[in-house]
Design a protein around this nucleic acid. Sequence first.
DNA 1: CTATGTGCAAATCCTTTGCAATCCA
DNA 2: TGGATTGCAAAGGATTTGCACATAG
Lengths: 154, 154
Amino acid sequence: MDKERSAQAEVRDILRASKYKYTRQREKIMDVLLENIDEHLSADDVYNLVKDKAPDIGLSTVYRTLELFQDCNILHGIDFGDGCKRYELNHEIGEGHHHHHLICLVCGQIIEVKDDLLENLEKRIGAEYNFDICDHQLKFFGYCEKCAGQKSPV
Amino acid sequence: MDKERSAQAEVRDILRASKYKYTRQREKIMDVLLENIDEHLSADDVYNLVKDKAPDIGLSTVYRTLELFQDCNILHGIDFGDGCKRYELNHEIGEGHHHHHLICLVCGQIIEVKDDLLENLEKRIGAEYNFDICDHQLKFFGYCEKCAGQKSPV
DNA sequence: CTATGTGCAAATCCTTTGCAATCCA
DNA sequence: TGGATTGCAAAGGATTTGCACATAG
């Protein structure tokens, strides 16, 4: 895939720019992230997926790499309240798009909302609080179509 | 304090309405939450604060109570990425107000933004996705006034 | 060649759970 | 009274760390 190819090159350059090495493991982990760009993978998810490509990889390498990628602004972590951190590629990488999440309080389903109408709000608030905003995260909580009847957590 | 008094009564009624008991421990925990309404306390923070009022309380009671309060919509948990869940009273309880957070990527400082201009967006998205939205959470990431120079995490 | 990165196992941290004793309604 | 709640200690799960070895540049 061309898109993945260039995303890999981009990541390699980002890492090298910060004097980090572009290792086999980091490449494979990036592969997994790109192949599952619509998912919200946990470190363990990534570990299980990447083991097919690099059976000798260690779980701690996955943790360390995800943290490194986060520091390099390649991805960011989100908490959906299920007890582990999940990751999402930043929109500059791959075919990403800025989006938000609808989280169903009953079934836990997460629906992505393609929308980025917060730019004005972001500017206004940044100016008002003298805060240099570079990203935002918006979560909506409520009840999905299916669960709209039964309003109590499982 | 009158405000705290009535907030306590409100909580007591909410609990009783769901057939939960209004115990001494739950009352003391609520005290702590009301006295620190501007903070984002973790379970451990609450535990340490409440030990002054009820030295015999157990950490698991704190965890269980915070979870119960969350189920009852008295408070909700937020993740600021520091490895533990933090809690915030809902705006219906106490003197709360709907607000968002500015999180500094360098010093980790959290600034509250009093603002609720998302109602229209909420309505629009709810309608578009047929999702019954009852709450939202918005976080802005960036650099605070002090840290604006040094753009790299500590 | 040498600093960086890795795998493994052990350690750590936060949170949950089992159970007997206790307490509220 | 009787079911809900609690405290304690132990278990659980996610993440981090120490260290000897491997590897990218």
